[in-house]
Design a protein around this nucleic acid. Structure first.
Lengths: 251, 251
DNA sequence: CGCTATCTTGAGGCGGATCAACCGCAGTGG
DNA sequence: CCACTGCGGTTGATCCGCCTCAAGATAGCG
């Protein structure tokens, strides 16, 4: 279940095939020389459904996601789940506060996934050789933190339909940002309605009703992991996101 | 409204007066040489209620909080608010994704506050001189991110009383961690019930009822900004936090 | 073709929001 | 000294959004 075949139909030739994933590697931000090239990072692959690391267990490496979708999640003792974050290519995973501490959340591959891993022990040497690496790492983590704050506001203060709309819009924009210059209004979104519920703090039953409403209102269709944005303006309105801000994301 | 006079009554002499605030400065993690000493960071003060930076405006410096409490928050168009994070001494504020971008959240001083500020422009030179600085920065931000994930789970999946208990317990533990070796069960918590509501996604009315229940059950008392933990074990149970984990925090 | 995961739809209940008083207390100004 | 004001907390009545439980329907897959 890779991302291939799910992409947009018309895609500009040339650089756009090089995904702008903004990770730790060399092609991400040209103005900063890259480190990973000089450090022999080892690639790993995970199948959809596998855990990259697990809740309550130690994790001795950080992962730089190069292909696929990963969710970070928390489990409650009664089996319910809260999805904390959707990681897209470029994300850094597993940089935890405190060396060799237990992870306080898990990471599961939503699709087949490839990552390059760097042991925690290697971080200090890398940083000494390439000081910019540390800043870039901080920058990537700060972005994830900002996304977490965003979802905190959504879950804490918005109604069900706004939460779902917000989630879909954000994922759509983040996905699209990986293929700059590309105009799409449809994408493969590897989620079940249960996943959407776990991310928005709702039950899958209620997510289903909300999606039905959004479809009836001609805003979005989400059916069997295919997301279509029918009316972007309405979606932005329902998601309670500043249109100005959306423009700045799209660039 | 400084923190003085609010501290615990019996405090071990000696090192415990040096607050372990784990910030960017030299006394935070002895194993890593510090940077800020070599960079002439400028101190600033803010009064309680003032904004360190505001939602939708640019912010050209990062702040290292040295004294006081700061909240990060979001405002909705209808005037409601979501508190995203409580920053305690040692925290790094204003390191935003993307240089000179608009802040997507605001920061307000809950008490009188002192910070040392470092312009964004100075970060790259600092990192080049002291590479560990970048790692420490990333580490601090990752910790905040982890706390945000924690609250996401609480708000998304727990009942009102669990959310409130979770918040109070976390704040208590984080406050106490600043004074290691100190046994206290009472603290000055500079929050209103409205603040607690804005942090937990509840209304102040409902927070009031929940606090009443917690008081009746002999778990905690929170009255006019004074928090007393009556029954820590029960609180840990209600907050749905792994007792093992709590122990590891307390050390 | 049966099995399982996912989606769909309905009925009923509850947790927390909303609306609306009222209290206690600290200023503050006459 | 007391009236006035404002903030924060307290309490009650009512309402509604979302959860829960339950029973199909549909799609994907070996």
């Amino acid at each position: 279940m890779s991302m291939s075949g799910n992409g947009p139909t018309k895609r500009p030739l040339g650089t756009c095939f090089v995904r702008a994933h903004r990770g730790l590697c060399a092609d991400c931000r040209p103005e900063l020389p890259c480190v990973v090239a000089s450090y022999k990072s080892s690639d790993r692959e995970f199948e959809a459904g596998q855990d990259l690391f697990s809740l309550g267990k130690p994790c001795d490496s950080i992962y730089n996601l190069t292909e696929g979708w990963v969710i970070l999640y928390n489990l409650l003792e009664d089996g319910r789940r809260q999805i904390l974050h959707f990681a897209l290519p470029g994300a850094v995973l597993g940089f935890h506060p405190g060396d060799s501490a237990m992870m306080t959340y898990g990471a599961q591959a939503l699709t087949d996934v490839t990552v390059s891993s760097i042991p925690h022990k290697a971080l200090l040497p890398i940083v000494k050789q390439q000081p910019e690496f540390g800043l870039r790492l901080a920058w990537l983590i700060a972005r994830d933190c900002s996304l977490a704050f965003d979802r905190l506001t959504s879950i804490g203060r918005h109604s069900a339909s706004k939460r779902v709309a917000h989630l879909l819009l954000k994922l759509f924009i983040r996905y699209r940002a990986q293929w700059p210059g590309n105009q799409i209004e449809e994408m493969h979104l590897p989620l079940t309605q249960e996943d959407i519920g776990d991310a928005t703090g709702l039950t899958s039953v209620h997510v289903n009703r909300v999606l039905g409403d959004l479809r009836k209102d001609g805003i979005v269709k989400f059916h069997y992991r295919r997301l279509q944005i029918i009316n972007p303006d309405k979606l932005i309105d329902v998601a309670r996101i500043d249109p100005q801000l959306v423009l700045s994301w799209i660039r």
